[in-house]
Design a binder for these strands. Sequence first.
DNA 1: ACCTTTCTGTTGCAAAAACAACCGAATCGT
DNA 2: ACGATTCGGTTGTTTTTGCAACAGAAAGGT
Lengths: 219, 219
Amino acid sequence: MKKFVPVLKKTKLFAGVGEDEIAAMLSCLGARLRKYKKGEYVLQQGGYLADMLVLAEGSLHIQRDDYWGNRSILGHIGIGEIFGEAYVAPGSGVLLNDVVALEDSSVFFFDVKRVITTCSSACRFHTAVVQNLFFAISEKNRGLVQKLDFMSRRTTREKLIAYLSAEAKKQNSPYITIPFNRQQLADYLSVDRSAMSNELCKMRDDGLLEFEKNRFKLR
Amino acid sequence: MKKFVPVLKKTKLFAGVGEDEIAAMLSCLGARLRKYKKGEYVLQQGGYLADMLVLAEGSLHIQRDDYWGNRSILGHIGIGEIFGEAYVAPGSGVLLNDVVALEDSSVFFFDVKRVITTCSSACRFHTAVVQNLFFAISEKNRGLVQKLDFMSRRTTREKLIAYLSAEAKKQNSPYITIPFNRQQLADYLSVDRSAMSNELCKMRDDGLLEFEKNRFKLR
DNA sequence: ACCTTTCTGTTGCAAAAACAACCGAATCGT
DNA sequence: ACGATTCGGTTGTTTTTGCAACAGAAAGGT
């Protein structure tokens, strides 16, 4: 686990906390590390969860397949991101989505009860972590609202523009790389892949953007 | 403000805290109360927010109008619900939605910094409130994910079924009352009102449900 | 009680999306 | 280097949606 302390230091959860303190807090927070092979499920729909998770290595997708195999992608998880925390609350019910490893990945499990119950002594930085957690969840919340904004658009073109614009703003550049291939992007925006592919080319013909694979340039 | 202490006692935020303690905490948390007339804006898109809000009286809609007047309803806020908390975090940017009073309403404003910074002495229940806040945000988070689930459905019928089923589960009965009229429901699900109205009637003809105004019975 | 406004359902038409099938190019594994 | 698989783009058809206009019912105000 020690190996990943520098990674944790860069996360929102441990912002402002030094590496030594993080190393010391790991046991205090009941940290465990699990590794997953590409394609393996980190969490499964219908299951229960008692821990808060942080991705240390690799990348993940939060997604859901219905009875007919139609897939819906809720989001992408990159290194340092928190997930699963919303299902720890009492009475939160079963998980609504799968979380699957896109490549070989490592995940930290933290005992949330020990995170949000400030321990009496030792951890001077515990309060900071609680605040960081609040801010991180808030950020995730805003992200979900933003995704709802994409999805509330009526046409595929509007959805693409809303998503790509938000991404350009987030990456602070008109040149953006997205964590999806075409099928995944279609599943993320809940549209048909071929129709979306078609629309992307029309948008290129209209001079709205250029692209190659998963790299886009907006104008 | 004292008048609303019994209301606050029933909220998720103050779960497990007695009325006396709540009354004592109000100043500790920097509470203020504001009243709004029907139709008035509690929060406005593009603005900034430094407080966490709790609805004490009335009801609100979180919504957004675009340049052409198309409205999108993000959600409904009932008595005791928390809102606005996601925009208090540093670097969270401007508000993405309006919050408008559907009827004469009263709203508590709390200084979030004082909520998440456990005060040294006095408030024995402060830690409980921090945990409650975490659980409340988690619940809101799950609600947003569920709404994304509605919106990811391809047809109006599927969206309606997903929404009404979730509502029936929440209200724990096949007889449900929704906080929307037809236009509002359409704006909530991001579909055309007339098409939705049409679809609802077809679903009734197909024996899937019955309805009258904003009361539905599912089978 | 009357008029006005809002709400809901209905219809026809045009636009868009879903779906299915196909093809060439790139990628992967051995 | 080879075949198999994945990926992205294209096209045509069917289904669904969005839009506009309208009408009766209900609700609200004076």
